[in-house]
């Protein structure tokens, strides 16, 4: 049984490198598909998913506890919804969001806080 069946994944070590890599993906003609967020070692793991010529490519970045990742919605506008979703569900804060719903994309003030965190 394979331990990891995600193909074409690149680990990225710092947030500025993430932004540079995402800009590079756009320059290379990749379509932004989505971002996946996971809990990992007190922090979070982000997997950015892109597509070109029917093939996927991924970037993986570990968000340290308390770190505020940068939004990539300035590069790909469509990233704004998924980043807002993770602000709601995981309690992350993305800096520089094109539209910031401030943790209320889905959740109301009376909803459970960060239900997936």
């Amino acid at each position: 049984m394979p331990d990891n069946v995600i193909q074409n994944i690149t680990e990225i070590k710092s947030m500025p490198e993430v932004l540079k890599a995402v800009e590079g993906m756009k320059g290379d003609g990749y379509r932004y598909v989505t971002m996946i967020c996971l809990k990992a070692n007190e922090g979070h793991e982000l997997i950015y998913v892109f597509e070109k010529d029917d093939k996927l490519k991924h970037l993986r970045y570990f968000v340290k506890p308390g770190e505020k990742p940068k939004s990539v919605s300035g590069i790909y506008l469509c990233a704004l919804l998924i980043e807002n979703e993770y602000q709601d569900l995981f309690g992350l804060t993305f800096e520089g969001l094109a539209i910031d719903y401030k943790g209320h994309l889905y959740l109301t003030p009376n909803s459970p806080k960060t239900p997936l965190a």
Partner: peptide, 12 residues
């Protein structure tokens, strides 16, 4: 994690 097509289309 599920990313549905309308989620991708709303920003358009």
């Amino acid at each position: 994690k599920v990313r549905t097509p309308t989620f991708a289309n709303i920003p358009s």
